[in-house]
Structures are given as structure tokens and as C-alpha cells.
Nucleic acid binder design. Structure first.
Lengths: 223, 223
DNA sequence: CCATAGCATTTTGAATTCAAAACTCAAGGG
DNA sequence: CCCTTGAGTTTTGAATTCAAAATGCTATGG
């Protein structure tokens, strides 16, 4: 009766996640061919699960599959980011609206805790820790809307933006500014002021997109 | 009859499309197990490309993969639709805004032509022709925004709604109403009146979602 | 010296194979 | 009588195999 059969490890998902991380971490860079054989060896798997994963990543828009010519890491263009900005803006505006209606005190506290940890990373110059927590804060805000679809689409687009690896171009000034924006976001969230929250989220998003675009432009010249 | 023949060139994409159509056509119904072997025979392919396709469809949210227990067609719940409505509303609102700025006269004419063909289907009681054209009109509006990301996300969600097969529950009254809503949409589009367009798109979406939900509720009891 | 045709190698796409897990169903025990 | 048990079958997950396509390399001719 008490059949506590744990769902066995979703093995294939692991590969998708692993390759996705490789892309986000910059181990696989935009425009580059995906070295199928190498990754198989690295993950100690055969080509079958990897190829399944590549199909999924292609549908997420992280890679491009060229028939009989292999897979390439998608190269995000400034036009892509320009397209993404208004869409992410619309999603964040909706999130700002919903989250102020839905969020509990406990959830605010949880986000506040993440925020302070992120502030510590900022203070200590721990950029990767900062980005990790930044990611989680935005995710928690989306989760607190109670709207799974919203969170899913947001994560979908946020993943693509991550490809630009705009963190590489994070000046101290920009970092300080982003941190200040997050202070404002937390403030508005604490007061459940959806108008102000939406406004600050949009400002923050705009700056994030601008930074990403400047990285893309610089990268384009380098090659 | 239902001849799901694939385009020969990129086999795998064809399989994704073919299975997706099977779901939309109601050949594979929510909650049902996906008969792997049967579909392989039907499409005359081996399990490898089918399994790749299933992974992609799972990432689209059309099916659910249970480890070691096969794939099931996702069963859309009313809660899912309630989540989707505000998100699709936000995307359509953005589309209404953008399309009024961007659309050319030629594109309006093209949509108008589709609209009249759809009106003819309505008049003749051709429901499946109506839905096909309805689909294309909404797609063209999204395309005319010039924002590929927006169109992509919209198609993603519209695909899920299609799973509800709400067309089955289309009363003549509802059909007449939907057609009237489309008249208003076309009118607003012709005048590039984004406020009115957004308003009508929202009304139309609300009714579509309500119809879908009523089908889901009815289906839930029957099974 | 360069261009290109022809051959060998590598890479890709998809079928087949193989092991492990789940399901079926009938027999045995409480 | 119902619950458990376990062998046989089916289904699933993933490696391997195989054919076709692309890529690279050499040799030959202009």
C-alpha cells in the first residue's frame, strides 16, 4: 500500500541541464559547433541521450540544428534582445501586478533573505554568487505570483538572455546601479506597491538588456 | 484519410509536427498513454526519432514523460487555463500595441482576405475550416508585429489551449459571437486603433478560454 | 602554381540491439 | 476469499551499429 516508489532519476533531463549549464557558463560559446563526441565523453553517455537533449535545447532556442551539418550554439543578436525586451517587460509587468496581490509575508521574507545574501556578494565582489542569487530572486518573484505558466515563459526568455553572458561586461558602476535597483524592487515588494514595483522591474530589465546588447556588439567586432 | 505523411527531408522535425497534429486533431487524447510502437508503425519510423520528438513535445508541455512509465498526453486543467489567460492577455495586449504601429496596408489586406474566407466557413458551417483560418489570422497578427519572440511565445501557449479541443463545444451562439468579435478585431486593426484592438482581443480571448474551460469541466465528469 | 576531381575519413541521422524496469496473470498461502 | 509472490512478457532507456552525407586530402591536369 505505502508504495513510496521514488521516481527514478530523470536521466535524460540531466543531460539537458548539463549542456544548458555549459552554454550559460560560457563553456560553449555562441556560433560554435557543438562537439558531440567530446560532450559524450565528458558526460560519459552515448550519442542517443545527447542528441535527444540537443533537440530539446533547439526547441528552447539555445542551439540551432543544421541538417547534416550539426548543431551550433545560437548566437544572440541585438535584434533578438530588442524583440525580447518588450515581451519580458510585459511578463514582468503582469508579474508585478499579480505578485502584489498574491505574495505572503513569509515569501517576502524569503526574498528579502536572498536579497541580503546578494548584497553581501556585491559587497565582497563575488560576481558569480551575485548572479546566482539574482537569478533566484527573479525566479522567486515569478513563483510568488502563483502562476506557473508565467514563471515558465519568463524562465524560457531569461535563459536566452543568459546566453549573452553579459555578466562579463559588468562594470562596478553598472553593478552598483543594479544593486540599487534591487533595493527599490525589494522596497516596492515589501509595500506591495504594484505600480512602483512594475516601474522598477522595467528599469532594471532595460538596463540588463542594454548591458547584454553592449556585450553582443563588442563580441561581434572581436570575431 | 488521416494521412500523417511526413516531409522527407528533416525526419525528426516532421515527427514532432506529425505527433503534434495528432494531439491537436484529438487522435491522441488528454491523459492517454502515447502508444510508441503504434505511432512508429503509422509513421514508418523507428523508435529513435519518435523518442526525440517526445522529448521536444514534453518541453512544449503537450505531453508528460514518466520515467520508465512512458509518455502521456497532458491533460489540461481549468487551473492551467486560468494561469494561461492573463499571460496570453499580456502577450496579446503587447501585440495589439505593436501591430498598430508596425502593420502595413498589404498585411492588413492579407488578414482581411483570411477573415472573409473565415466568414464564409462560418456561413457554410465548416467548423474545421473556420478554426484553421482563425488560427492563421491570429498568427498573422502576431507576425505583423515584427516581433519573432512574441509570436513564438504566443504560438507556444496557443498550442496548449488547442489541446482542450474546445471546438467540440462550439455552440452556434458561441460561434456567431466569436465571428462578431473577429469583425470588431478586423475593424480596429483597419483603423490601427490599438486601444480598441487590445480590448477586443481580450474579450475574444476571455471567451475562448471560457469555452475551453467548459469543455475541460465536462470532459472531467465524463471520464 | 592553382583549380578541381576522386578517394578516404569523419560526422551525422536513424535503425537495431540489449539490459533493466514495469506490467500481467496465474498459483500459493494466510 | 483476498492478498502476496514470482515467472514470463512487454515496454522503456540507452548503447551500438549501419548507411548516407559532409569534410578533408591528395593527385592530376591546365
Amino acid at each position: 500500500m505505502n508504495d513510496h516508489t521514488l521516481p527514478s532519476a530523470p536521466l535524460h533531463d540531466g543531460v539537458v541541464g548539463a549542456v544548458r549549464e555549459m552554454i550559460f557558463d560560457g563553456e560553449l560559446i555562441g556560433g560554435q559547433r557543438v562537439p558531440e563526441k567530446l560532450i559524450c565523453e565528458k558526460l560519459s553517455i552515448s550519442r542517443t541521450p545527447l542528441r535527444e537533449a540537443l533537440k530539446v535545447l533547439a526547441s528552447e532556442g539555445l542551439i540551432t540544428l543544421l541538417p547534416n551539418r550539426g548543431a551550433r550554439i545560437r548566437r544572440l543578436t541585438t535584434e533578438d534582445v530588442d524583440d525580447m525586451f518588450p515581451v519580458m517587460g510585459a511578463l514582468e509587468a503582469l508579474a508585478g501586478e499579480l505578485v502584489c496581490e498574491q505574495i505572503s509575508d513569509a515569501e517576502i521574507d524569503e526574498i528579502r533573505a536572498l536579497h541580503y545574501r546578494m548584497a553581501a556578494c556585491h559587497k565582497n565582489g563575488d560576481l558569480s554568487g551575485y548572479f546566482e542569487l539574482n537569478q533566484r530572486i527573479h525566479g522567486q518573484i515569478m513563483a510568488a505570483t502563483g502562476n506557473a505558466t508565467l514563471g515558465e515563459l519568463y524562465a524560457f526568455l531569461a535563459g536566452r538572455i543568459r546566453m549573452a553572458r553579459y555578466r562579463a561586461n559588468f562594470s562596478q558602476d553598472r553593478w552598483d546601479q543594479a544593486m540599487a535597483e534591487h533595493e527599490d524592487i525589494l522596497q516596492a515588494l515589501g509595500e506591495r506597491d504594484s505600480v512602483q514595483l512594475t516601474k522598477m522591474l522595467r528599469t532594471h530589465l532595460k538596463n540588463t538588456c542594454d548591458t547584454a546588447k553592449s556585450v553582443i556588439e563588442a563580441g561581434g567586432l572581436r570575431e
